[in-house]
Design a protein around this nucleic acid. Structure first.
Lengths: 204, 204, 204, 204
DNA sequence: GATGAATGAGGATTCATTCAT
DNA sequence: CATGAATGAATCCTCATTCAT
């Protein structure tokens, strides 16, 4: 058995865990399975992670950081137009969910009793990600481009759309007659339309 | 310990299962626990349900039927106005998710590999529920009240919003600074606004 | 695999546990070992005992009951003479410890953190056993045969002697040059002499 | 993290082990815990002790030496009166057991199969400690102060009392209504009375 | 209908220990 | 002198399921 450097094995464990997560779901994740997959003894995992929760926590942290970094980049790259930025952020969120579904499951899809075992701090970071949406909405309100009485609540409603879309896609519950990209575009359109300022009725 | 007739026991099992589901989540549901709870032997459950999957399947079926029946009633009760009906259906969906979270978890929230073990038929029935939304949208288009190029896709986008909202609430991941009802109203508003016809024609 | 009646297996488990207890000590007692010994799966043990603690508890209870019943018998059989009764009770205690060393270990020798997990009630019964000693001493005081300012404390001091003797013998730490029975007799003599009334000094 | 010289680390390991022993008991002692506690790797312990048994052995040896040295001092300090010396030795033994309970547990309380793994020599040294009692008794016999047909056996009976008292106290099994010091005094009284010469000759 | 008896597989962890560096 | 990497065996316990009664 060739010895890896500690960091390598740690990475390997995390990568494998994500792989199993997407294949079997959190409910079927087990330390033994991870060990089997990487051809190490289960005990070895405990050299790098205090326990199963800690391992998942590390994954969540990593996912949160990735998402936040990606969304920050997107926000910076779309400074000009509010709608364009909003749409890009939304698209980014969904893309992230689909591309890193392993992270997404553990970050947003698992049952609350699991969540409760984790330091709240970790989840607070999740909210920082929503702030990017909120800031965009706030800016749009100043511009008169966006219409919302409560951008806190609106941000969360937007998130609901995005989270719902990702969930449906990951659970492969989308009606098979509908093209996935077409669906995503519809979701994005819906979000943008729902926040866009509408002159109550045209003049007279 | 009074013994129930066959049908009664079956009901009892299902009711208890739902109760446990809402208390502990699917991941912690076990045949033994159910048996203990109803003061029957674990074996007895197998007299009524082939196995754990079959029991859950029955629950899903029941949940689907309940949701469909509820939404049908709502649709009939709101024949008049399209927007009112749409909003009522949306509200109904969210209410159902919150009120019957046990059903909702098993119907929509558990991991796909679980779903795969079930007859697709059961899930097809889920889509019938979406048809009510689609019919409403279609009617709105005829009226000129609603704007959608593809009501299939729009229906699913609406569903994404609703499902996302329910998921966030059930997982208790809503920002604690936001009132739950306020959030729900925002989601409903957003949905309605996103499908409402907007005369592009600004002034002049 | 022939099926035993529940009670039979339960007995078998308890008997085997005692056997292992005396062989390997509580620290090395494991459910697996018990199962292996009786040629049943470990799971089967859990059909009869909620967990390891419960199994040990049952053993403790049984041991306490046995000791108490034995000592009661001895007390009744030696109603006449106080010294004779005292000596018989002491002898009985030591005999019990040696004969049922498996019980004795779990009843009196294991570490307090284990004891803490058990209902205090069970240990209160242990004290009832000491009451027989105390009643004997009290009677002797009335007779003028026994000398003690505080029979509570004296009882416990007597117990210390007995418990120490049993512990030393069970741990096989008695000096090999000394015959076991000779040692026991010395302990008994010592106890009796230590409580016997002594005229402070002869007259004159 | 300051590194210690070899001898220092060895001391540190032993001290920490004793600390853990008194906190969690032998059954919960683990090399890893020791290592964690001293901020060294588990492997480091093996540089100084062949294995867990050897570590415990060293502790036992140390404890035996301490006890012997203490008792020697007591004997020397009480050369004058036999009863005073006997009582002081007894008191010393009990005090040692209570004060150095970590040592006492490992020296006298753990299961024989553990003991068997140790060189008998170590335990023989334990007996040397009993010799101090025996010598005192022998001297008392010469004086006519003490009454014993076989001081070997009597010594061991005395030890039984002491060991029993310590065991009961360490296991916190003493009836809560009895004050600890009162109990100890009773045990000491009992020992002294049981060996004191009594003129059988009652009055005339 | 109902159940007691039974199990194999698997769950998370912990342990003492070895070995190459 | 010290350690990081690694493991096999063990720990308790839970689970879904079967089968004879």
């Amino acid at each position: 058995m060739e010895r890896k450097s500690g960091a390598d094995l740690k990475r390997m464990i995390m990568d494998t865990t994500r792989k199993l997560l997407v294949k079997d779901g959190y409910g079927n994740l087990s330390m033994r399975k991870i060990a089997r997959e990487i051809n190490y003894s289960a005990t070895s995992i405990y050299l790098h992670f205090k326990n199963k929760d800690a391992l998942c926590h590390a994954l969540i942290d990593e996912g949160m950081a990735m998402l936040l970094s990606q969304q920050n980049k997107i926000a910076r790259a779309n400074k000009g137009d509010v709608f364009q930025r909003l749409r890009a952020l939304c698209e980014g969120y969904i893309s992230f969910g689909l591309k890193y579904s392993e992270y997404y499951e553990i970050m947003f899809l698992i049952h609350p009793d699991f969540e409760n075992r984790f330091p709240k701090a970790s989840y607070r970071r999740a909210r920082r990600n929503l702030d990017l949406f909120k800031m965009t909405l706030d800016e749009g309100i100043k511009n008169g481009q966006i219409d919302s009485l409560d951008t806190y609540a609106t941000t969360n409603a937007v998130w609901a759309s995005l989270h719902g879309a990702v969930s449906i896609l990951l659970a492969r519950r989308l009606d098979f007659r509908i093209d996935q990209n077409h669906f995503i575009n519809n979701v994005l359109d819906q979000i943008v339309r729902s926040v866009a300022y509408k002159p109550t009725t045209s003049v007279l």
